[in-house]
Amino acid sequence: MNPKALLRRRSVQIVAAVAALSLLATRPAHAMHIMEGFLPWQWALFWWLVMLPFWVWGVRRIMTLLRERPETRMVLGVAGAFAFVLSSLKLPSVTGSSSHPTGTGLGAMLFGPAVMSVLGTIVLLFQALLIAHGGLTTLGANAFSMAVVGPFVAWSVWRLLRRRSLWLAVFLAAALANLSTYGVTSAQLALAYADAAGGFIGAFMKFSAIFAVTQLPLAVSEGILTVLLFNALQSNAAAEMRSLGALENVA
């Protein structure tokens, strides 16, 4: 079978498996994404303004990428689909909330955080419009945590560790991107709704505790799944990954 055709087949199989899990696990619940209307308008506007320069930077980076390396479009699509499917998976947590993977680590390692700031926002926009996961007024806040902070953490860990152990770098990049996203979301909620007694710190501890029980095993699972998909790409799209520089200076 043609290597690119085999890559498409394996990528579709992995994404389809995760999609099936999301259908089985999804229940009505408040998601880790901040829901529509939950933030005061001042904070909602603040996070939109924070995101604007990242979106401009990301769009420019994508345009340059597609112009200079058009052969990487398929891998770009796989990274976007992976983030969409994984972040659509909602598992019930405690106190009526839910946790979910993010899927942004893979794209950050391959394309850098700028590209993922746009891909992640597109994922969040579709989720808000199609499955009521997140919201439009809270899109800026959700994008900052999942499409900016998470990818920056993943990219930094990847760059730091890839010369020592490839699989460990991929695993930790994906897992820590997940955990940092939920940590920033907790901080965003704590800023908007400080605890009457404990202030920001008290509110942050309460919000983070809501997700911790399920988010930790989810981060581990996401790290393992990302390693599997990275290996599939490395076996079947090595030329595209070398073009992106993803296989340079790796153990």
Results as ranks from 00 to 15, higher is better:
M1C: 08
V12C: 03
V15L: 07
A17H: 05
A17W: 11
T26C: 07
P28T: 08
M32T: 09
M32G: 09
M35P: 00
F38T: 10
L45K: 13
W47L: 05
M51G: 07
P53Y: 01
P53D: 02
W57V: 12
W57F: 14
R61S: 15
R61M: 12
R67G: 14
M74F: 13
V75C: 02
G77T: 11
A79N: 05
F84M: 15
V85K: 02
L86D: 03
S88L: 02
V94Y: 09
H100R: 07
T104D: 06
G105P: 04
L106A: 07
G107S: 10
L119I: 15
G120V: 14
L125K: 01
F126Y: 09
L130H: 03
L136G: 02
L136P: 00
F144H: 00
G150H: 06
P151S: 14
F152V: 15
F152G: 02
S156A: 14
L160D: 12
L161P: 10
R162N: 11
R164S: 14
L168H: 09
A169F: 08
A169K: 04
A169I: 07
V170H: 06
F171C: 13
A174S: 13
T181E: 15
T181C: 14
T181W: 04
A187C: 03
L189N: 05
Y193S: 00
G198Y: 11
F200D: 01
G202Y: 05
F204I: 03
M205I: 00
K206F: 10
F207N: 13
A209D: 08
I210S: 01
I210E: 00
P217A: 11
L218G: 07
V220W: 13
T226A: 05
N231W: 15
A232R: 13
L233V: 05
N236F: 11
A238M: 09
M241I: 09
M241K: 03
R242Q: 15
G245Q: 14
A246W: 03
L247R: 04
L247P: 06
